[in-house]
Amino acid sequence: MTLPLLAIAAWSGTGKTTLLQQVIPLLKKRGLRPGLIKHTHHQMEIDTPGKDSYLLRKAGADQVIVASSQRWALMCETPQRADVDLHYLVSRMDPALLDVVLVEGFKDEPVPKIVLWRAGVKDEVLPLMDGHVIAVASDSHLDVAVPLLDLNQPEEIAVFIAQWLEKRSTNAGD
């Protein structure tokens, strides 16, 4: 089974993380199980310096799994990769546990996406638009050929996502 991907794409500072923090619980209330992949352009450490897993990774382990009865995490060193491969990352997720993978960022990936556009942030909406955009969420009126959602109404966006997933599953059954 292939997990549906839905990217939330926008210019930096538009509020992608803030919106996802609001939408994810609303999707869960609807019985949906979202996963998330977040793209960052920054160096990142998710392991705690000084902890055993950190020390062993820094000692040269290319992959480290940290596991407890509540959660587990896989950390991979990938210095030889030029860029992040979204589909490889998705393949690491368990389709038995998820209904959709929300993707924050990856605005240039050829996957379905909701573009966020906020007046006064960076640039125009047009450079974000491509043939994979299924909706635009904005705080302004825009003339777009896809549904226009209210960026300040996370419930409206969650309903749109749930309906999009329902249509996908109905069409997959045809």
Rank of each mutant, 00 (worst) to 15 (best):
G50P: 00
V146Q: 11
G131E: 08
L86Y: 12
G35C: 13
W72I: 04
I114D: 02
F106G: 07
S53K: 12
L116D: 02
A119Q: 14
L148G: 01
P34E: 03
P147H: 04
P147K: 06
E124K: 15
G60P: 10
Y54H: 15
H87E: 14
L126F: 09
D139T: 06
R118K: 15
L97S: 08
I134E: 03
V125R: 08
W72G: 01
A119H: 14
V100H: 06
V101M: 10
Y54L: 06
I114Q: 03
Q63K: 13
I65M: 12
D52A: 12
L126I: 09
L32F: 08
H87G: 09
S69I: 11
M44A: 03
T40Y: 05
A67I: 06
D108H: 15
Y88D: 13
A135D: 00
S138Q: 01
C76V: 01
D94Y: 06
F106L: 09
K122V: 13
H141G: 00
K29W: 05
P95G: 06
Q43H: 14
D94C: 08
H132C: 06
A135Q: 01
P110C: 05
L97F: 04
P154Y: 02
L151C: 06
H41A: 15
D139W: 07
I134F: 04
H41I: 04
K29H: 12
W72A: 06
L102T: 04
W117N: 05
L97Y: 02
P34A: 07
L148T: 02
P34T: 02
D108E: 14
M129L: 14
E156Y: 00
R71Y: 14
V121L: 09
L56H: 15
W117Q: 08
D143K: 07
R81I: 07
A82Q: 15
Q63N: 07
L74V: 07
M75Y: 01
D94P: 04
K113A: 05
P110R: 05
R33K: 14
L97D: 03
W72M: 10
K38R: 11
H141P: 00
N152Q: 14
E156V: 00
D123F: 13
P34I: 03
I65W: 11
K29Q: 15
P95S: 07
V111T: 06
H42D: 10
Y88C: 09
N152M: 10
A158V: 02
A61Y: 03
K107W: 08
L86M: 13
F106S: 09
W117G: 01
D85G: 13
